[in-house]
Design a protein around this nucleic acid. Structure first.
Length: 489
DNA sequence: TCTCTGCTCAC
DNA sequence: CAAGTGAGCAGAGAC
């Protein structure tokens, strides 16, 4: 089923023609024409929901879009999803339009600087790699690389293959081969530099708008199956931060003027808090109430040691398990990621469920309920349907079950930040500061210096209070300020 | 020009 | 089989 109908409606799509038939006024004609155009270009199934077109149409004309939304409300009332629609998505639309129109400033000199380093690195590595390979080839082609490494150099006896029969050369595979030959490490470095240059350094400047000099991403309200936003052209929700070199790119995102600073406001461990709340697990809730480092607290429980005896390795493992749980863990998956035998991974998961029994219950109940009702829902009532939840194919069914576990967690976090955005947009009316970006659990602001004392506490309060989590699970926000996005963290 | 594949970036 | 949600790049091949 279409992700949009899963999100907002939870029933078979309304047909455009049904919804607007017999209506004659101007907006509808305009709207129908836009929809027809999209349909004729093959961009849209004519039977898809009108809301999807509305969202795309929104960027072009917010006023018309809002009027059309109001016409949809009677339809939505029939299917009892009004709160998500009326309280979250509809008021969020103008907020997103405003954010897109504001955009975010880029410091080209930072991109040039990083680009220079990357170009040099790519040049040097290309040379070294081709020397190791004994011939020249296209380093950007996984196919050619696979033939070199496994067909010609024969680095391993039984190379892994992709589903199309090509040699596998992804990061995980190559990392395991690093001890075999220096070429492998060099290829990984090349890949990193090449990715950073093509996707960010080279692409971002092309997205600067002439009229503003800023970058205006598109924030898609209705494309994900869980209720999150998506960002494109450019995607500003995947700007690097994990690797040292990639992180430097965040210095290119700057305030819009001398009187401004950037402020980042992050929900701390929001998905784990949501899971603690939805499951009602006493131990995990207690950890959050005591403002403990959740991964350290988990490590102490799983490994049966005191908090101050938790070593980094234990915390790292616990962190993997915590995230794994949110994603619908398997012993195999955990063993792969931790590089440990499957039996050990299995033991860790077993202990985890003994320590957090309500979380285990939550997972069982969520999949059971998804089987019975066909859907799961978030705290705000946002639904997602799972057509494969009863599939006879165990693998397909397991996929649906993992998604069913994850959706109310990820989706509730999405409800929360979306509601916060609506409140914040309201309280910022008539002020100089602007909300410029959302990255799932983070909001980024151009904060005017005149407002740097009064505004942050109001934003903090709006984020904390957006949704009160059941079972008294506290919400925590981290604030950061700086002359660029990196510093603001 | 379009679509698919493989890969990698984020939360 | 084997961890949830996205977007974008280059290569490869169809049209």
């Amino acid at each position: 089923m279409d992700s949009l109908s899963e999100n907002l409606l939870g029933y078979s799509p309304i047909k455009l023609v049904d919804l607007f038939s017999g209506q004659q006024d101007e907006e509808d004609d305009l709207f129908a024409a836009a929809a027809k155009k999209k349909a004729s270009k093959g961009e849209l199934d004519p039977s898809e929901l009108p809301i999807k077109i509305l969202a795309e149409y929104a960027a072009e004309d917010a006023d018309v879009t809002l009027q059309l939304y109001h016409k949809l409300i009677p339809e939505l009332k029939k299917i009892n999803v009004l709160s998500v629609m009326e309280d979250i998505e509809s008021p969020l639309l103008p907020v997103l339009v405003a954010m897109e129109n504001e955009g975010i400033s880029l410091d080209q000199s930072v991109l040039d600087e990083v680009g220079k380093v990357l170009t040099e690195k790519i040049k040097t590595l290309s040379k070294v790699i081709e020397e190791s390979a004994g011939r020249s080839f296209n380093l950007n082609s996984p196919k050619q690389l696979g033939e070199i490494l496994f067909g010609e150099m024969k680095l391993v006896e039984k190379p892994k293959k992709t589903k199309t029969g090509q040699f596998k050369t992804d990061e995980q595979t190559l990392a395991s081969l690093a001890p075999k030959h220096s070429i492998v490490t060099n290829i990984l470095s090349y890949r990193e530099a090449s990715k950073l240059k093509s996707t960010y350094v080279d692409a971002l400047p092309n997205h600067r708008a002439k009229h503003s000099g800023r970058v205006h991403t598109h924030l898609h309200q209705l494309v994900t199956s869980t209720g999150r936003l998506a960002s494109s052209d450019p995607n500003l929700q995947n700007i690097p931060v994990r690797s040292e070199m990639g992180r430097e790119l965040r210095r290119a995102f700057i305030p819009r003027g001398l009187d401004f600073t950037l402020m980042a406001a992050d929900y701390s461990q929001v998905e784990l808090r949501v899971m603690a709340s939805l499951s009602g697990d006493p131990a995990m809730i207690k950890a959050f109430k005591n403002d403990l480092d959740i991964h350290t607290a988990t490590a102490a429980r799983v490994f049966g040691v005191k908090t101050d005896e938790v070593v980094p390795e234990m915390r790292r493992t616990a962190k993997m398990v915590n995230f794994g749980i949110i994603y619908g863990i398997s012993a195999f998956g955990l063993s792969q990621r931790l590089g440990i035998p499957r039996g050990e991974a299995s033991e860790i998961i077993k202990t985890y469920f003994e320590q957090y029994p309500a979380i285990h219950q939550f997972m069982l109940q969520t999949t059971e309920s998804a089987r019975e009702k066909g859907y799961t829902q978030t705290i705000a009532g946002r639904r997602r349907y799972f057509k494969d939840i009863k599939s006879g194919n165990a693998s397909i069914r397991a996929n649906a079950e993992r998604a069913a576990i994850n959706s109310p967690i990820q989706g509730t976090a999405a409800d929360m930040i979306k509601l916060a955005m609506v409140k914040i947009h309201d309280l910022m009316q008539g002020r100089k500061s602007k909300m410029v970006l959302q990255v799932h659990d983070e909001l980024l602001f151009d904060l005017h210096l005149d407002e740097q004392h009064e505004l942050p506490p109001l934003i903090l309060e709006a984020m904390e209070a957006a949704i009160s989590l059941p079972n008294e699970v506290p919400i925590k926000i981290d604030l950061g300020f700086g002359d660029n996005w990196l510093q603001a963290h």
